[in-house]
C-alpha cells in the first residue's frame, strides 16, 4: 500500500511515534474508538409493529 494513496483502514504511526493513525474519509485520524452499542441498536421489529 503506497503512502501517497492509502486505502481506508490503512494504519501508521505519527512521525513522533506517539500516536497510531488510521486513514478514514480521506484523512489520517488518531481517534479510532470502539463504538458504544446503544440499547436502541437492538430494537427488534416484528411484522405489524410500527417503528
Amino acid at each position: 500500500m503506497s503512502e501517497e494513496n492509502p486505502k481506508p483502514g490503512a494504519m501508521k504511526f505519527s512521525d513522533d511515534g506517539e500516536t497510531l493513525l488510521i486513514y478514514e474519509d480521506g484523512v489520517w485520524k488518531a481517534d479510532y474508538i470502539q463504538i458504544q452499542q446503544s440499547t436502541e441498536d437492538g430494537t427488534e421489529l416484528r411484522d405489524g409493529e410500527k417503528g
Binding site: K7, P8, G9, A10, M11, E24, I35, Q37, S38, D41
Partner: peptide, 27 residues
C-alpha cells in the same frame, strides 16, 4: 437507529463494516 444502529443508512453501515474489517486486518 433501530435499523442501522449508529450509522445513518444501509450504505454507511456496509461501508463502515468494510472499514472496520480493514482496520482489524491491518492492525
Amino acid at each position: 437507529r433501530a435499523f442501522f444502529g449508529p450509522y445513518a443508512s444501509l450504505d454507511e453501515l456496509r461501508a463502515k463494516l468494510q472499514f472496520h474489517d480493514a482496520v482489524a486486518g491491518n492492525a
